[in-house]
């Protein structure tokens, strides 16, 4: 981790922008590290959760938004639950992910995760509900390297009648389309 902090970062409005978008005030964090201590996925992350907050506190936008950490957060909300200062850390990760996607800077190493989210939402957009089969095939198509992973599970699911080829379409698909249109 080689980061140089200059007045350019320190003067930036990153923390303010995060607060305006989400209501989360990172100033409240006193960096005790309890979020990191209890994070079940911390061992996989490039930066610890408390460091992500520190990035926001100090205006290190690039470091925060391009981190793998924000994608690896499993949204288990253990951090926010135990935070002594009641900083909503898990919710902060949501905002940072949203901003990373908007700015097109999401870390390519976690493409599996972003692709999964996209495939999932595409299915919702199309049918109003998840069609697990079609969602999975989109994901596997776009992440061919994962094609062989869990190869045995799909057929087993189908045998048990738990993976249907017929999508569950809702009647109000139009209304779902409208929601997706409004909140692109």
């Amino acid at each position: 981790m080689k980061i140089k902090i200059t007045t350019k970062e320190l003067k930036s409005d990153f923390a303010k922008e995060v607060k305006e978008r989400s209501g989360i005030d990172v100033k409240k964090c006193y960096q005790c590290g309890k979020c990191t201590a209890g994070c079940p996925v911390a061992y996989e992350m490039d930066y610890m959760p408390n460091q992500i907050i520190r990035f926001v506190q100090l205006g290190l936008r690039h470091e925060a938004l391009t981190s793998r950490t924000i994608w690896l957060c499993a949204s288990c909300i253990t951090c926010s639950t135990r935070c002594p200062k009641e900083v909503k850390i898990a919710e902060l990760m949501d905002v940072l992910r949203e901003m990373a996607l908007e700015e097109g800077v999401a870390n390519p190493k976690e493409k599996n995760i972003t692709t999964f989210h996209k495939a999932f939402l595409n299915s919702v957009k199309k049918h109003g509900r998840i069609s697990e089969f079609w969602m999975l095939s989109e994901y596997k198509r776009k992440r061919p390297k994962t094609a062989l992973q869990d190869i045995e599970i799909g057929p087993q699911l189908m045998l048990k009648g738990k993976l249907s080829l017929t999508p569950h379409d809702i009647k109000g698909k139009k209304s779902i389309k409208r929601i997706f249109e409004k909140f692109k």
């Binding site: 939402l121 919702v124 009647k171 409004k182």
Partner: peptide, 25 residues
Amino acid sequence: GDWNCCGASSAHATNHKLSTALSVR
């Protein structure tokens, strides 16, 4: 009647407003 997917993690992890609207509907 005619419920829809809440958007699950994929919506709230990437688009707060979308997630909110899908759920609230």
